[in-house]
Amino acid sequence: METIIFTNRFGEVVSFGGPPFYLQKINGLGDVSVNLQTQKIPYQDGSVFIDALLEEREIDIEFLIVNALDEGGYGTVSERRERIAKVLNPKLGPGTLRYENEHLVREIFVVADSVPVYPDDARTKTMQKGVVKFVAPDPYWRSLKVEEEPAFKPLFQFPFSGPFQMGEQRDRRIINNDGDAPAPIYVEFYGPAVNPKIENVTTGEFIRIKQTLLEGERLILDTTPGVKSVEFVNSLGVRRNVYTWIDLNSRFFNLQIGENDIAYTADNEVQGAIVNISYHKRYNAV
Rank of each mutant, 00 (worst) to 15 (best):
D247K: 14
Q256A: 07
P184G: 08
V194R: 04
I209V: 15
G18A: 15
I220W: 03
V132G: 03
F158E: 01
I5F: 03
E168A: 10
V117K: 03
L248Y: 11
I108W: 14
P192Y: 15
A151N: 04
F189L: 06
Y43C: 00
Y140T: 04
T244R: 02
I277Y: 13
N241D: 15
P154G: 01
D180L: 00
Y279E: 10
K40M: 05
F109I: 07
N8D: 12
N195K: 13
S143V: 04
R282K: 09
P163S: 06
P159Q: 06
G272E: 03
T203L: 09
G162N: 11
Y118D: 08
V194T: 01
N195I: 09
V135T: 15
I185S: 08
F49Y: 14
V275L: 07
E149P: 08
T96G: 04
I84A: 01
P159M: 07
N241A: 10
L54D: 11
R218P: 01
D60F: 03
R218Q: 10
Q169I: 12
F164N: 07
N89W: 02
G95T: 04
S78L: 10
V34P: 03
F160G: 01
A68V: 02
R9A: 05
V194H: 00
T96L: 04
I50P: 00
S229D: 06
E62F: 14
L36F: 11
V14H: 05
P94W: 05
Y43K: 01
R240Q: 13
V110H: 09
F160T: 10
E205K: 15
L155H: 05
V270M: 04
V146R: 13
E62K: 13
Y74V: 04
S143P: 01
V77C: 01
V14R: 03
L214D: 05
V227T: 09
L155W: 04
E107G: 00
F16A: 09
I274K: 07
V105I: 15
E56N: 15
G237A: 11
P192N: 14
Y243E: 06
P94A: 07
F232E: 09
K40L: 02
G237F: 07
F160K: 00
V286H: 11
F16Y: 14
A136E: 07
T265H: 07
F158Q: 01
P163H: 02
A151L: 09
N101M: 12
F252E: 00
N268C: 12
L36W: 06
Q211E: 03
Q256V: 14
D180G: 02
I174D: 12
T126G: 04
E205N: 15
T244S: 00
A68E: 05
E107H: 08
L236F: 11
K125E: 14
R170N: 12
G75S: 14
F189S: 03
P19K: 06
A285C: 03
R83T: 09
I209D: 08
